[in-house]
Amino acid sequence: MVQISALDALAKSIGSNRIVRGKAITSVVGDPTLNPEDERKFRKRLVQKALEALRTPVEEPTVLA
């Protein structure tokens, strides 16, 4: 499992093992400052990162860049 969370440090401290940092609490996989097309690209990149995290070996709670 990979967790996308804006509070990546908190996710790490409670022991979530694969973490990708999201944009904001109120918009974790979106960015309302972008136009709809760019926001969708931004979200796609986040999900691609999450998929990459799923195939990455980790030993302990890790925030994957």
């Binding site: 109120t26 918009s27 974790v28 996989v29 979106g30 309302p32 926001e39 969708r40 979200r43 796609k44 986040l46 999900v47």
Partner: peptide
């Protein structure tokens, strides 16, 4: 939750 209620994909990225 205003931003999510404008576009629910901001919390569940089903579209992408």
């Amino acid at each position: 939750t205003t931003l999510i209620n404008l576009d629910p994909h901001r919390v569940v990225p089903l579209d992408v």
